[in-house]
Structure formats: C-alpha cells, structure tokens
C-alpha cells in the first residue's frame, strides 16, 4: 500500500487548465494569422505604395497579437497563473477593430 499523497502548492492542475488556456492562445494566434494573410491578399492586386502600407499594417496587427499571446503564454507557465491583465484584453480588441476597420476601408 502506498501512502496517500497530499497535493502541494506547486502541483500541476490535473485538469490542465493553464495548458488548455495556452493552447487557446495558440489557436487564436493561428486564426489571426489566417485573417491577416487574407487582409494582405486583399490589397495584393492593387500594387503601389498604399498597398505596401496596407500589407504592412496587416502584418503589424499580426505581430502585435503574436507578442500579446506570447507574453500571456509565458505568464501561464506559473503553477497558479493570475487573471488576464485587462490591458492585454483591450489590446486584443484593438487588434480586431484595426483588422475590421482596415477591411471596411478596403472593401469600400
């Protein structure tokens, strides 16, 4: 008979909540990449300086999102990670709005 093992503070959560949250950030980043590529493709056929500017804007949105996700993934490495900082949540929202406004401007 083995002794009953009591959980300690540093133990991993058996439900793998931080891991699942990390993967949720990963797949959201992936979705963001696809959308940014579509956004870049939108201006591909026009060419010229404005197209280059628009394509770099789409790339910038993706890079900002990638950075936000990476930072959060590092935070989630702790045994008991804290609440998502509201600044990060708002930055994600700003990225989405930038993509949508960009899309509306180009489609129009």
């Amino acid at each position: 008979m083995s002794a009953v093992r009591h959980p300690v503070e540093t133990d991993r959560d058996p439900g793998l909540q931080p891991e699942r949250t990390r993967l949720a950030w990963r797949r959201t980043t992936l979705s963001c990449a696809v959308t940014a590529v579509l956004a870049g493709r939108q201006v591909l056929h026009t060419g010229g300086a404005s197209a280059a500017l628009a394509a770099s804007l789409a790339a910038l949105v993706f890079l900002v999102f990638l950075w936000l996700a990476h930072r959060r993934i590092l935070q989630l490495d702790a045994p008991r990670p804290g609440l998502l900082p509201a600044a990060s949540a708002l930055a994600v929202v700003v990225c989405m709005l930038a993509l949508a406004v960009f899309g509306a401007a180009v489609v129009w």
């Binding site: 699942r20 949250t21 949720a24 950030w25 797949r27 959201t28 979705s31 963001c32 696809v34 959308t35 579509l38 956004a39 493709r41 939108q42 998502l84 949540a89 994600v92 989405m96 993509l99 949508a100 899309g103 489609v107």
Partner: peptide, 18 residues
C-alpha cells in the same frame, strides 16, 4: 478561454468578410 473563443469567432467573421 471563453473570451478567446469569441475572439476566434470574430476573426472568422472578419476573415469571412475578406
């Protein structure tokens, strides 16, 4: 994670628009 799922839904709609 629920927040991120909604963000992915938003991304899908925006990508669908494109």
């Amino acid at each position: 994670r629920t927040f991120l799922a909604w963000i992915r839904t938003a991304l899908a709609l925006i990508g669908g628009g494109f």
